[in-house]
Amino acid sequence: MTHRVEPAVAALLAASLLAALCVGPLNLPAESVGRVLARLAGLPVEADDRAIAVVSALRLPRAVLAALVGAGLGVGGAVMQGLFRNALADPGILGISGGASLGAVSAIYFGAASFGIWAMPFAGFAGGLLATNVVSRLARTEGRMPVAALLLSGIAVNAFAMAMMGMLVYSSDDRQLRDITVWLLGSLSGASWQRVTLVAPAVALALAALPFLARALDALILGEREAANLGVRVERVKRLAIAVVAMATGAVVSVAGPIGFVGLVVPHVVRLAAGAGHRRLLPLSAGAGAALLAGADTLARVVVAPAELPVGLVTAAIGAPFFALLLLREKARLGA
């Protein structure tokens, strides 16, 4: 059964993206969406102006952004869980989400948002990279980064970022406070091609690094010394893994806010279906994360239309029960 996972995830991703393009508060027939897509692909097809505008300027960038964000979070979670050999690791474990959130919240607080739509993503991205940098410096001893030290440094940096955010929340005025609250729920609203171009390179680089990581992470399951005996250059792998996750997560959080749950749970679901080998786990986590977020965001856009839900609420609300169900089904096997 496990060999059918790749086609299943691919089909799921295609279905989510299709739904994201065809479904929305504005009622567009699937046929006219198809015409727009054909037109965008360069085919000589007539399409109506309204459909072109809505699909190409609103739905398409948003679907692509959702998929990128989901892929980034899914891969980030899978890599971190592999590196830490810890099922509770998520992309935020190295302080990246905390740092990125602090960066974005500072941007709101200091009014950087009025310097244009790029200010917040950049502040978020910078915050994430800075946090990762601090964590790796804190954890480094004699040229090595012991996993336990990384984990504890991550906890320290996250706690500090949370405290700083608390200070900003406390001293912000009514309007900033409401902005911060909305942002912290995680949302893809305002998705545009500019934001896609901001996130795409980071996620693409992370995906490109996966083949170099997969074998090493497999070896790391046995333990660091054993992996080293197998010829894995453990410290280099750690640095690469951290760089990859920092970039992807920093970019993702800075445009979409801290969307929880995806990075933690998607790798688990994939592992239950396809096993723990990273050669399959990493790309499948990317695909499944993309499918989950594109689907969740479609729901977020329509359930309370013409208003919209923060997508972070939707991922948690549909993902958590689904995960619990899977656990129930697999409990016997897990216990064995």
Partner: peptide, 18 residues
Amino acid sequence: LPQLGYLRAIAAEGVLSL
């Protein structure tokens, strides 16, 4: 009336759909 959602978090396509 149809609700646009919270003042600080309105949705583009939602508004256009009206």
